[in-house]
């Protein structure tokens, strides 16, 4: 699969990574190279094969749906670049 410049820009935007015009050509060739290489999976007959969802057959444990942790908002926001009164601060979002 070869991707074009527009696709590179679209993927970067979906991934929320800003790219410069000068980045596009390099990314196009690298991403195309990788996507070309994974095409070899099409040689494998996977008809009727279940996709893997877990490597071990173990059942996930369940616990009671109760609060076991919390009351530490200050610790949670401690690493935020900007916070105020234990809230995260972001640029104004207008829909």
């Amino acid at each position: 699969m070869t991707v074009d410049d527009d696709t590179v820009r679209r993927i970067a935007h979906l991934a929320r990574i800003k790219i410069e015009d000068s980045d596009v050509a390099g990314l196009r060739s690298e991403l195309s190279g990788i996507l070309d290489w994974v095409e070899q999976l099409n040689e494998v007959d996977t008809d009727g094969v279940e996709p893997m969802t877990r490597v071990a057959a173990h059942k996930l444990k369940k616990r009671k749906d109760v609060v076991t942790d919390g009351e530490m908002a200050d610790v949670v926001v401690k690493n935020a670049p900007f916070s105020e009164d234990n809230y995260y601060v972001v640029p104004k979002v207008i829909e």
Binding site: V38, L41, N42, V44, V49, V55
Partner: peptide, 14 residues
């Protein structure tokens, strides 16, 4: 085409 296919191949590898 990609993710589901890869997860099926993963089943075969296992």
């Amino acid at each position: 085409a990609y993710y589901l296919k890869a997860q099926k191949v993963r089943t075969l590898i296992k």
